[in-house]
């Protein structure tokens, strides 16, 4: 197994210490970690799920717009951040492992280094509005 870049190691260490739900993907869009707070939101701990390839994780937990329609993978903030090297924000619903729906806001930002992109981080928190996905 290859060594993770330091920037991802430090990101995971930080996320592990946070109560803010957070996701981490590598430069290829593979979901490589989410923290305990995100696990509570999703109803499943990362250790139970393990790494998940791009495209696949996008559909694991919804995400759905305000009308309940699936949001295309390419439009998810984390995907926008890792592919376009820019921050992105959206509101949408996610489906937990128990099937319940939760409206969340998500902000994602890229992890850029002198050698290029390493991946991206997204933080989530419950949304109070019923607004649909927006960027």
């Amino acid at each position: 197994m290859s060594q993770r870049p330091l920037e991802l190691i430090l990101a995971r260490n930080l996320m592990s210490a946070l109560s803010t739900p957070a996701f981490l993907v590598d430069e290829g869009g593979v979901l490589i970690f989410y923290n305990e707070a995100a696990g509570m939101l999703l109803g499943k701990r990362f250790e139970e799920l393990g790494t998940v390839g791009p495209e696949e994780w996008g559909s694991l937990f919804g995400p759905l717009d305000a009308d309940g329609k699936p949001i295309p993978y390419d439009e998810l903030p984390l995907v926008v951040a890792v592919r376009n090297d820019r921050p992105a924000h959206a509101n949408f619903k996610i489906r937990s492992a128990s099937g319940s729906l939760q409206m969340v806001e998500a902000s994602a930002f890229p992890i850029l280094t002198a050698h290029g992109s390493r991946g991206a981080i997204a933080v989530f928190w419950p949304a109070s509005s019923n607004g649909g996905a927006h960027r």
């Binding site: 197994m1 290859s2 060594q3 993770r4 330091l6 190691i9 430090l10 995971r12």
Partner: peptide, 10 residues
């Protein structure tokens, strides 16, 4: 930690 998540391991 898993080995690949340890800084400097490789």
């Amino acid at each position: 930690l898993e080995e690949d998540w340890i800084s400097g391991f490789a």
